[in-house]
Design a protein around this nucleic acid. Structure first.
Length: 462
RNA sequence: GCGGGUGUCGUAUAGCGGUUAUUAUCCCAGUUUUCCAAACUGGUGAUUGGAGUUCGACUCUCCGCACCCGCACCA
């Protein structure tokens, strides 16, 4: 069997209605993807599994859904408006891009990162003759340009002359920091505790690429766990382990395809930072989730910029402090791509290739497909309809499939990861086996006869 | 954003300055079919968009757009 390529998975995703290129009929929009009928089911199942693990199965966690639009000062506090807008200029000869502020500093000219584009441009122009391209030594640069990852909007502006733009979130987790005090004040939450949120983020990625891996609009599932200062280490280790276990046990991802990798260069405030990486086809190991030991940076920044005291008072000891934060942050698109990549298998069956998505049943977009063995036998069709209606009421994501012959239906369901196919045949209608149907297992391709009244219980148990 | 490459039905592909634009598969409808992509019939469906050259452009030129590779970016 040849090596699986990401192209195979992208092709399947499009062909079967998991993921479509964004705005496709207009030629496509870079960095945007739409989830189709099966994709949205898978995505919702992933979110539900994540929410279950971080909210329902925990009594020290609280859910949240914060507004997308936030006070622009939020992004000043987080560092996104300054720290992530780098002034760059390009060498006209070899196209190497230089950081203008860093090159200026090398020749002793101080360039503050808070300077405007115009100021930097002026400084750059004044010193142009002293600057050389570090690669080809030419001294011919294009104009200075600021690259800022934040997406601006004109929210609340009707004149087009707004002094300060309102930004779309560059990361979803800021909403958690903004509501830390609210959650403490309105719930029984006592440190240590966590807040979980799944939210949208938007980034002006210079070069979105690699399918769902780097997009301009993304959804992030974040947890922020608030602990007492300096009581971060043990909990951080537990979180790392728990998150790894979640991928293998809940999502069913192969352990050998996952690894934890420590950041080599930490941002100045971070105590520690690790990524969970998955070994994607074609791309190789790349980050799906970041786990960060962030100290008190985030709440301190927001306290400073907002003027609101965000410290916590321990109800037992009356100790007052800014809690430290342990963060997990995973892109839902990356999670979905991980699950698709890991579930995708090409197998040989009776000399033919079969493509099968070995998704955990609870993640599968279609739980069960129901077929009459033959579609030109009204008595089979009627009985199958009955079973279909019953199961659909129970599970929702149930598919009716009477197209082509039975083998073809099995293959079609294999390809979208449907764990069980139920077939109503002549034995369902008469003889000792009356009232039973065959249930065919996606992974083993084996089937067994099950009584109709036991179907729901049987499918629930699996 | 820069440099290079690519762009034909949903998918995978063939071909040509003048074609009814090929084939397979998928999909839809029907016939058939007593369990792993059988067969038959019919059907929908494509030259990435826009200009230009030309009597005529899917084919040549230019400008967009998207995707791929490299650089850069990646809280």
């Amino acid at each position: 069997m040849s090596e699986v390529k990401m192209d195979d998975i992208i092709s399947l995703a499009k062909r079967r209605g998991f993921v479509y290129p964004g705005s496709e009929i207009y030629g496509g929009q870079a960095g945007m993807y739409d989830y189709g009928p099966l994709g949205v089911e898978l995505l919702n199942n992933l979110k539900a599994a994540w929410w279950k693990a971080h909210v329902y199965e925990r009594d020290d966690f609280y859910g949240l859904d914060s507004a997308i639009f936030k006070d622009p000062r939020v992004w000043d506090a987080s560092g996104h408006t300054s720290g992530f807008s780098d002034p760059l200029a390009e060498c006209k000869k070899c196209n190497t891009r230089i950081r203008v502020d860093k090159e200026l500093e090398k020749i002793g000219v101080t360039a503050d990162e808070k300077m405007s584009e115009a100021e930097l441009e002026r400084l750059f122009d004044e010193n142009r003759d002293k600057l050389k391209c570090p690669k080809c030594s030419a001294a011919d640069f294009g104009p200075v340009r600021m690259f800022n990852l934040l997406v601006k909007t004109n929210m609340g502006d009707f004149t087009g002359e707004m002094a300060e733009p309102v930004y779309l979130p560059g990361e979803a987790c800021q909403g958690i920091y903004l509501n830390f005090k609210n959650v403490v004040d309105t719930t029984p939450a006592k440190i240590p505790f966590g807040i979980a949120q799944i939210g949208k983020a938007f980034r002006n990625e210079i070069s979105p690429r690699n399918f769902l891996f780097r997009t301009r609009e993304l959804e992030q599932a974040d947890t922020q766990y608030f602990v007492k200062p300096h009581e971060n280490k043990d909990e951080y280790e537990r979180i790392k382990q728990r998150r790894m276990d979640w991928y293998t046990q809940v999502l069913g991802v192969r352990p050998e395809k996952l690894r934890l990798k420590q950041h080599e260069n930490l941002v100045f405030y971070a105590a520690d930072a690790w990524d969970i990486e998955y070994d994607f086809p074609t791309y190789g190991f790349d980050e799906i989730e970041g786990i960060h030991d962030r100290t008190d940076y985030d709440l301190t920044q927001h306290a400073k910029f907002s003027g609101t005291d965000l410290s916590y008072v321990d109800p037992m000891t009356q100790e007052k402090y800014i809690p430290w934060i342990l963060e997990t942050s995973v892109g839902m698109g990356r999670m979905l791509l991980t699950v698709l990549s890991d579930a995708y298998h090409e197998e040989e069956i009776n000399g033919d290739k079969r493509v099968v998505l070995k998704l955990k049943p609870e993640l599968a977009p279609v739980k069960v497909a129901v077929s009459p063995l033959l579609k030109n036998k009204p008595e089979l069709v009627a009985k199958a309809r009955e079973v279909y209606t019953m199961l659909k009421k129970e599970f929702g994501a149930v598919m009716w499939d009477d197209n082509g012959n039975i083998g073809k239906r099995y293959r079609r369901q294999d390809e979208i990861g449907t764990p069980y196919c139920i077939v109503i045949d002549f034995d369902t209608l008469e003889g000792d086996t009356a009232g039973t149907v065959t249930v065919r297992n996606r992974d083993t391709t084996q089937q067994e006869r099950v009584k109709i009244e036991e179907l729901v219980g049987r499918l629930r148990a699996s």
